[in-house]
Design a protein around this nucleic acid. Sequence first.
DNA 1: GGCGGCTATTGGTTAGACCATACTTCCAAC
DNA 2: GTTGGAAGTATGGTCTAACCAATAGCCGCC
Lengths: 255, 255
Amino acid sequence: MNQPRPGRAANTAQRDTDDLFNPVSLARASQAIVDQIRELIQDGQLRAGERLPSERDLCDRFGVSRVTVREALRILEAGGLVTVKVGARGGAYITTPTSDRIGRGIEDYLTMSPSITAVEVTEARLVLELGIVPIVCERATEEDIARLLAMCDEADAAIADGTYTMEMSADFHIAVARLAHNGAIEMLLGPFHRPMLTSLKAAREAAPAMGKLGVKEHRRFVHAVRDRDVPKATELMKAHLERTAARVQRTGAGH
Amino acid sequence: MNQPRPGRAANTAQRDTDDLFNPVSLARASQAIVDQIRELIQDGQLRAGERLPSERDLCDRFGVSRVTVREALRILEAGGLVTVKVGARGGAYITTPTSDRIGRGIEDYLTMSPSITAVEVTEARLVLELGIVPIVCERATEEDIARLLAMCDEADAAIADGTYTMEMSADFHIAVARLAHNGAIEMLLGPFHRPMLTSLKAAREAAPAMGKLGVKEHRRFVHAVRDRDVPKATELMKAHLERTAARVQRTGAGH
DNA sequence: GGCGGCTATTGGTTAGACCATACTTCCAAC
DNA sequence: GTTGGAAGTATGGTCTAACCAATAGCCGCC
């Protein structure tokens, strides 16, 4: 187990004296590169918009092959830390993670983790959507409220047409979340809607009547927000969401 | 622009008849592979624990080189959808994303997105931590409460030693969140603590006194939970968090 | 019966090559 | 002079072929 150091490999910063329990191998050069670049970004030594050296340059600097550098870039790209462009003046540009990309990860987790039940997802959503009501009541501008009411009008029209969809309801809730004017909350709440939609679509018995009642509740909620009536808005939203939650529970925990 | 089909490349499922607007190149074979495998996972055709074919097998099946397959695997791995093991019987195993990995993404977003201020992060945390109080009061078992009290005891001891750290406070809050017995909430709340810690550490004037008061508040909160007194527990947690929030705000929005 | 080494499988990495893309430059035609 | 296109160049995307490293499982020796 302690031969004269076999191959190439930038792992296990080898120490000759056999002092006990030395760290045991980083294994995977690409990950080491990722860590290094990630740290540079977090330290602010690389800022959004800046361009990393070309892949071939990075090979020289890190002392690895292009394949390895490219794998590192793929990982960083998957994490939303860089975007890669082709062509002259192409390369890896530092970028700040978008809520979309992170949302995808959260959504994957909510959807695919077997330890997360639909009931839990619903509950978490309830915590978030109720929690923001006071903030929304405080910050919503007249334009914000007008926009929400317009959405209600559209929804009513869609119901009359028979073209109302669950997506429209989800859009309303997302629009409400946006009124908190808090990017962190928006990012957290966004990913909940697709999993909820699939849960609900599986359970859409009596959809038209449901939709009609839902829009009515939406509108009353907007009015409460307009009146800055936090308790009433909270109460309305709670009833609205719990009715939805009941439907999810009735359908069982399946995703 | 319509030569006899230049090279290899499995993109742009070429159609000879020039019917209008054919899809225009997937650009990046590795991404196409990722999409395919991701879909198989979401459809349930690949389940957690199952093993993908070896890289060399996948090359044959997808008709691409090993480099390309490996890039795809790196992306999937970064998203927490597979883990790759080396050696005989190694390979890519389907896994369900862990909250840790997703948390890393959220944390990156909270930390690095310039559009997210520390104030927003604090506010989002407040929404979550207050929102779960009723759930915690309902679900906390005697053992849960005993464990929280034990943490308070340890914290007191650490304060006496002068070894109390912000991490211990964060651990307490994480433990509380765990009592909601809701994986989704736990996943959302976890990532907040590291950004908060760095914000707070930057601002730790008068840390010792601070810590002492904090632990006292923790203990009173646990007592309220034990008594299933939702309003009181909420009130205590709110005061506790808002005191923290005030410190963050005083220090400015810097991350 | 248990232990140690062989072997096969499989991921990790390298090197060098070629193609596709997109920006730059420059020349020629109007 | 302006404009349009052609050549040049930098850069990512992919391929091939090979070797190294880690691991599980088998087999033979003691």
